[in-house]
Structure formats: structure tokens, C-alpha cells
Design a protein around this nucleic acid. Structure first.
Lengths: 219, 219
DNA sequence: GTCTATATTGGGATAGAC
DNA sequence: GTCTATCCCAATATAGAC
């Protein structure tokens, strides 16, 4: 048991490095996170970090890649089940809220590391953009499925942007107040109103209040 | 004319330092912006920076202070003129959009510098929070005036948070796409729907589409 | 794959002439 | 108030034993 299962040692160290690096970079940002911080936080010498990832930049790219993979896997599938719009919307929002809760690092990484431009390599910048793009595509397809917008791509775009802006803004607010959760209640009302505003058929038309499915999420 | 007007030299240098420091810190964040970067960008030696501000931290605090003052001065007053809700809302959103456009650094600074915690002094952290708090108070009072919510503070809180989340999220999106503007059109629809959802009397009740005042702001 | 030790650059900050 | 020159240290990165 103390004898590590053969060559797993390397993989476990790799994961440990990524864990602590992700944690620190999400908290302090890329530039403010030093190799020695990571090293002392995870217990491995700096040379091990370099052996595994080659450079600080390499660590950053690897952290982003893993975060992207995990977050996308945690996000609800773009084919949302449900009979009508409000049902699908509630399912969708509940899952988004859950993913946002369980993976607080994703957006933080994009925020803190997004400010790179200068010292980051081309690979790093590319990975940041890919992360962002993946979220945009996911959001567009999801709202498209929820509201049935296959033939109204501009509307799907607008709703997706709106959802992502809210999520990003909440991630920012979280810096000041770590306890803050994604407020799906107001977002729900807003998305339904926006859809209706564009003439998208919605059963629970605004005017009559939306039924509270226990999703109102006010403190 | 080449002879500087007496003792103004110092003040002009001070402003120049704050200008370039603000620019750089908004772009790269606090940690990634070095003294030498600022020095060579504004043409003054590092010793001048230290003479004026004492430390990198001092520069940061001064930048934040000035940005806060300027942004708050540029934001619309919390007493919004207008006969009915939609009129006041349109005025309000137009001014917010304008301020957001003309002062792109404010939120960027809060984002990039917000990630400080570790190397920033207590004064710096305090200034960040004061900046944030000032924006929160302004937003709350503004929406309160727009929607007439003096007796519904929780509703004013929710609308204010929602507005700020959207603005923050847009500031984040701007990192990837510098051209992006605050989308007041969807925000307008959302705020009206949220108000109506809470039973706040609104003349242009949702269901009948809101009149486009040329504010729809879709690309 | 992991360790100790180290090379080397660039960072923040200061001294002191002008 | 501004300049040149410099100190000190932390940061990235590498060498080579184990």
C-alpha cells in the first residue's frame, strides 16, 4: 500500500500538481501564482513540476485543458428533456446551477488567466479561447434546445450570451463574496421574457407569474 | 511654453503615471504589470514612480481611487428624471451604456486587480471593496428611483444585482472581444419582466412588446 | 520520477547627484 | 522632482545525483 502500484506514481503526482496549481491560479491569477508556491503547496520540488510540464506556461495550459474537459462533462447535455418550454428550462437551469456550484474554478480560471496576453505563449492563449468557445457553443445549443430555436439562431445567440453574461458576472461577484450562488430565479424570468419578447411561443406566458418549482433561489 | 507653469510639473507627471499604470493594469492585471513596464511606457524613471507613490501598491491604490471617482462622476445620478417607469428606465440604461463605453477601465480594474489578496496591502484590498460597494449602492439607488422601490428594498436589491452581474459579465466578455458593448436591449426586457414578476406596477406590461426607442441594441 | 543545489534573469525598491 | 546607478531578492528554469 505504501508501495505505489507500479508506475502510477508519476500520474498521481501529475494530478496533484494540477490540483494545487488550479486552486492557486483560480484564486490569485496566473501571474501572481509562482512555481515555488505550487511546489510548496503540493509538496513536490520545482524540478518535478518542470519534469512534468516543462514550464509555468505548460502547467497553465494543462490546468485549463483539464478544467475545460471536466466542466464540459459536468454541464447538462444540449438535448434537454421535458415536454414544454418551462419544464425544459427548469431542468436546464437546475443543472447549470449545480455545475456552477460543483465546479467553481472553471470561470475563475478564465477570468484570472484570461488576463494573460503578455507573458502567455500562443498555446496558452489558444487554450483560453478554446475554453471560451466551448462554453459559447454549449450555451447556444442548450438554449436552442430548451426554447426550440433551430430556425431562430439570432434569438438563440442572444439568450445564450445573456445566460453566459449572468454566469460570468456571478463568478466575478463571487470573488468578493465566496458564498454567492448563480441566481437561477431571476435568470429564469429574464430568459422567458426575452423569448416572449422575440415572439417565441412559451406556455407560461409572462404576466401570469411563473410557477415556482422551488427554483426561485432568493436568499 | 516649454517652461512648465511653475510647480505643475509634478502634478502632470503624477497624472501621466496614473494614466499609463491604469492602462497597463487594466490590460494585464496587477501582478503582471511591473514597475519597469510602467516606467518605460510613461517615460519616467522608476525612482519618480516611487517618489510619487511610495510603492507598487501605492500606485495601485491611487489608480483605483481615481478610477472610482471618475466612474462614479460619469454614472447617471440616482435621481432619474422621467414621467413613467419605461421612460426613466430608458434614460437610465442609455446613460449606463454611455458610461460603460467611455470608462472601459473601471470594471476591468476591479476584475484584474480584484485577484490580489496575496501581495496587496490592506489598503489595496480596502480600496477594491470600497470601489465595489460604491457601485452596488449606486445601482441599488438607481433602480430604486427608476422603478419606485423605496418600500420594496429586496426587489431593488435583486434588480441592482442583476444589472451589475450583466455589466460585469459584459466586461469579462470584452476581454475576448474588445468591441463588445453593454446590451441594454435585453437588459431592458429582463428588468421590466423582473419588476412585473414581483408585482411592481409597470406601464408597458410585458406581453405587449416594449416600444423600441432605438435602444434595442442588437448587432 | 524525484531530490538538492544552483545558474540567471527580472522584479521591487533605494541612494544620492543634480 | 527627476535622473543614474545599484542593492537585494524572488522567480523561472536547469544540472546532475539518486
Amino acid at each position: 500500500m505504501t508501495e505505489a502500484p507500479a508506475q502510477d506514481r508519476g500520474a498521481r503526482s501529475r494530478d496533484a500538481i494540477l490540483d494545487t496549481a488550479g486552486e492557486l491560479m483560480a484564486r490569485y491569477g496566473y501571474a501572481a501564482t509562482s512555481i515555488s508556491m505550487i511546489s510548496s503547496a503540493c509538496g513536490l520540488p520545482t524540478s518535478s513540476l518542470y519534469w512534468h510540464f516543462g514550464s509555468k506556461d505548460g502547467i497553465y495550459v494543462a490546468v485549463l485543458q483539464r478544467s475545460r474537459t471536466e466542466l464540459l462533462a459536468a454541464l447538462p447535455p444540449t438535448e434537454v428533456p421535458g415536454a414544454d418550454v418551462t419544464q425544459r428550462l427548469d431542468t436546464f437551469l437546475a443543472e447549470v446551477r449545480g455545475a456552477f456550484e460543483r465546479h467553481p474554478h472553471g470561470l475563475r480560471l478564465l477570468l484570472g488567466l484570461g488576463m494573460v496576453q503578455q507573458d502567455a505563449s500562443a498555446a496558452a492563449v489558444a487554450e483560453v479561447r478554446q475554453y471560451r468557445d466551448a462554453l459559447v457553443v454549449w450555451a447556444r445549443e442548450s438554449v436552442s434546445a430548451v426554447f426550440g430555436l433551430r430556425d431562430r439562431p439570432e434569438v438563440a445567440d442572444e439568450l445564450a450570451r445573456f445566460t453566459l453574461r449572468t454566469a460570468s458576472g456571478t463568478a466575478v461577484a463571487r470573488w468578493f463574496d465566496p458564498g454567492i450562488a448563480l441566481e437561477t430565479g431571476p435568470l429564469r424570468v429574464a430568459l422567458l421574457a426575452l423569448a416572449a419578447h422575440h415572439g417565441v411561443p412559451v406556455r407560461g406566458v409572462p404576466g401570469e407569474d411563473a410557477p415556482s418549482h422551488g427554483l426561485t433561489n432568493r436568499e
